[in-house]
Simulated assay, not measured.
Amino acid sequence: MFSQLSKRPWLIAVAISLLLLFWLLSGSLLQTQDTASADAPAAEQGLAKVEVQWLEASPMQRQHVVQGQVEAWRRVELRAQISGSVIRLDQDKGSPVTQGQRLLSLSADNRPAQVAKGEADVRQRETDVSAATRLHERKMISANELIRLQSELAKARAELDLARIQLANTQISAPFAGMYDQRMVELGDYVQPGQSLLTLVDISQLKVSAQIAQQEVTQLTLGQSVRVELLDGRTLAGELHFIAAAADPGSRSFRIEVKVDNPQALRLAGASATLHIQTGEALAHRLSPALLSLDKAGRHGVKWVNEQQQVQFTPVQLISVDNQGAWVSGLPHKVALITLGQGFVEPGQQVVSQLAKGGS
């Protein structure tokens, strides 16, 4: 073979050139591999990469938002105290009434006669006691006889009072000013004691009742301002006027009531409403609810990166949530919140963080 190459010198020159080129390319490739190995991103060395956004706490008004039920300020169901027939419907249901106004009348039957008889008995007994007192002063009758006559007078007076009450109960009157809301009987119906006749409600004021969690009730005080939001978007101003002393055994929550003025007598009782209860100013972070996660104990929290590039999980208290985001408390004043990749990293894990676009 060498004899053939000696006869063709140009082949030797080509072979040498190819060897030199291969040597140069091998050296460049090795250098490139060394450089790439030295400059490779940390993610290629086994560290997860996450995007973060710097958030700083800002003051906000703390508030509790709970669902409530609008109720009439007062509601009473008037029942029959005596037996009798409905002889007159003095007012139409749905109409406003004043305190003491007659709403419905029952038959008096023999009750006026019972009152007249009682009045006569009382007059007779009073005369007997008056005469006996004078005789007792002259020692013409015993003290026991005088006491017996006085007892009979007291009994007659009690019977007269009962007869008068029975007669007065034939007239059903409004115990307070309000709206004649419902009627359960019709003209001519015969009713018995305890039977429901009608319902009267007072809507000059309204109360909105709700249940609030036991961990939040300590932040409430009587007299706090409350914004009441109705389903149609209207809002009313209210005041917290009742907080239950004991929690409901089933839900472990406390009943609260908010007083709302209703000078226009708006028909809102029975409707649903949302209560916004202001509980003072606090420092909090505003973030997307999608960034909230749960730890193994079921607590709400967020993941963030510390100065050592380690993932941290901090439980937070959810202050309020709306369509724009959530306000939470419990985080450090300034925090690098993980906005991308939080579902793939765990607390304590070393990561490489990169500032998200638009992050500060």
Score class of each variant (00 low, 15 high):
Leu294Tyr: 15
Ser142Cys: 10
Ser253Asn: 14
Ala282Ser: 04
Lys155Asn: 05
Leu47Gly: 01
Glu137Tyr: 02
Leu18Asp: 11
Lys49Phe: 04
Arg183Met: 11
Gly223Asn: 05
Arg255Asn: 11
Lys357Met: 10
Gln81Ile: 09
Lys93Ala: 04
Leu222Asn: 07
Leu89Val: 13
Gly194Gln: 13
Val86Thr: 09
Val66Leu: 05
Glu281Cys: 06
Ser83His: 00
Gln324Gly: 09
Ala158Phe: 02
His241Met: 08
Leu29Cys: 08
Arg286Cys: 01
Ser253Leu: 10
Ser105Ala: 13
Gln349Tyr: 02
Ala356Ile: 08
Lys207Tyr: 04
Val305Ala: 01
Gln317Val: 12
Ala210Met: 06
Asn169Gln: 15
Val115Met: 03
Ile203Glu: 12
Pro347Trp: 02
Gln310Ser: 07
Leu18Ile: 14
Leu294His: 14
Glu77Gln: 04
Lys303Ile: 01
Glu239Cys: 03
Val260Ser: 11
Gly27Phe: 15
Leu266Pro: 08
Leu78Phe: 07
Thr98Ala: 12
Leu146Asp: 01
Asp128Ser: 07
Leu230Tyr: 14
Ala265Phe: 10
Leu230Ile: 15
Glu281Phe: 11
Ala244Glu: 10
Glu44Lys: 14
Val352Trp: 01
Ala143Asn: 05
Gln354Tyr: 06
Gln150Asp: 07
Gln354Phe: 09
Lys207Leu: 00
Gly343Phe: 01
Asp181Cys: 03
Val115Asp: 07
Leu355Ile: 09
Asn262His: 10
Val129Cys: 04
Leu29Glu: 10
Ile319Tyr: 00
Gly250Val: 14
Arg286Gly: 02
Gln264Arg: 15
Ser196Leu: 13
Ala72His: 07
Arg8Thr: 08
Leu20His: 15
Arg286Lys: 05
Leu160Trp: 13
Ala336Asp: 05
Ser95Trp: 01
Leu275Ile: 01
Leu222Lys: 11
Gln278Ile: 10
Glu307Leu: 04
